[in-house]
Design a protein around this nucleic acid. Structure first.
Length: 365
DNA sequence: AAGCTCGCCAACCGCCCCGTC
DNA sequence: TGACGGGGCGGTTGGCGAGCT
């Protein structure tokens, strides 16, 4: 145990990334894709450890990142997921396309936690503070039991919960608490046992248990997650430079990368990107007013003359970023023998969870 | 204007898991 | 089968800007 070997090497830079470093890393990934992180610093000419490069890419440079403030729907989703999953930020982030675990974790620690505290809710248990304090022991037993059940891959969970142990539902759904209790467990179980979480399922779930308190427009919800592009205001878009870029995280993008990056190291895109990056660095919430704007595919595709790549690529990447694979991308993915997306970027299935899980949960509704 | 406090968030750290040899 | 390295995750830290005195 201990530090990674790469982290103990001398002369490695630490701390904030300079725009030059960002550019080097971005250009490297654009050219070669995401591969062995430990070799990235050397190949990219960076005095950083591979881990640091990976983190920088995942949390900041990745093209599909969404920036700006969290929407109300995202906030609700985070709260719901946290109630079910606890501090499993990576799993929560998997349900929020364009958001990183780090971002969600920070949002939780800086905002949501305090919000819940103000409402008298214990952020760790999502129960009223007074009740939570009295039930610490019971909660521990409950979790231990859940953990044991989980580890034994149990298919059916039968918790002997008391009335007071039922999870408290925050003023967001007015769900029936007893149903909520069982449902939460079922969903938690299905989530834990499913490697790639299906956001459609979750939203359907939310919608069904709380059609009024939750955004019932599924497509609207997803559209909201898309990187937005308002042609008239693109100067103010932190994510503009990436909004319709081709997928960069596979291994076979060299053709695109060379065409768009190597011909001119100070390409329009790159300079645009890093001017945007700097803007983001100085004010990460600058995209607040526009980040949640509607999804304007017609504009993104229609104005492709602004972009170096063609409209087909724009469309293709949009589908990839939204987790919907076009036939072409799926074929390409198969042909390349590589995952289409980076390690933590999930290709969401549009089909829901297995019918038995759905049936089990909805039966209880 | 200067000093202080506070909150946000990017990045680091330590640990765990998994694949490979 | 154990050592090793790489990737991933969650907790924590510290730099920096904004607001306050």
């Amino acid at each position: 145990m201990g530090r990674h070997p790469c982290c103990v090497k001398p002369k490695l830079r630490k701390g904030l990334w300079s725009p030059e470093e960002d550019e080097k890393l971005f250009n490297h990934i654009a050219r070669f894709g995401v591969g062995c992180w430990s070799s990235v610093p050397k190949l990219a000419g960076l005095q950083r450890c591979g881990k640091s490069c990976r983190l920088r890419w995942i949390n900041y440079l990745r093209p599909d990142l969404k920036r700006g403030m969290f929407s109300q729907e995202e906030e609700d989703l985070i709260l719901s997921l946290h109630q079910l999953l606890g501090n499993r930020w990576a799993q929560i982030a998997a349900q929020l396309p364009g958001r990183t675990d780090n971002e969600i974790k920070n949002f939780w620690n800086s905002c949501l936690k305090k919000k819940l505290m103000k409402q008298g809710i214990d952020p760790s248990t999502h129960k009223p503070l007074s009740e939570s304090e009295n039930k610490i022991t019971n909660e521990k037993n409950y979790r231990d039991e859940a953990s044991m059940m989980q580890s034994s891959q149990a298919h059916h969970i039968e918790f002997a919960t008391t009335e007071t142990e039922k999870p408290f539902t925050v003023d967001r759904g007015c769900r029936d608490s007893s149903d909520n209790d069982t449902l939460a467990k079922s969903l938690a179980e299905s989530l834990h046992s499913k490697p790639n979480y299906d956001p459609v399922f979750l939203l359907e779930f939310q919608e069904r248990i709380n059609p009024e308190g939750y955004n019932s427009n599924l497509m609207g919800h997803f559209q909201q997650y898309q990187p937005s592009y308002d042609h008239d205001q693109f100067e103010a878009k932190p994510n503009f430079g990436f909004s319709s870029m081709p997928e960069l995280t596979n291994y076979d993008i060299q053709g695109i990368a060379e065409a768009e990056f190597s011909a001119n190291s100070a390409s329009t895109l790159t300079s645009l990107l890093f001017s945007e990056v700097k803007e983001c660095s100085s004010n990460s919430s600058i995209g607040t007013s526009t980040a949640n704007a509607g999804f304007e595919m017609d504009k993104m595709v229609g104005n492709h003359t602004t972009f170096p790549w063609d409209a087909a690529n724009s469309l293709e990447s949009l589908f990839q970023f939204s987790g919907i694979k076009t036939e072409e991308s799926m074929e390409a993915s198969q042909w390349q023998g590589q995952p289409q997306c980076s390690d933590d970027y999930i290709s969401y299935q549009l089909t829901s969870l297995s019918e038995d899980i759905n049936a089990e949960i909805f039966h209880q509704i």
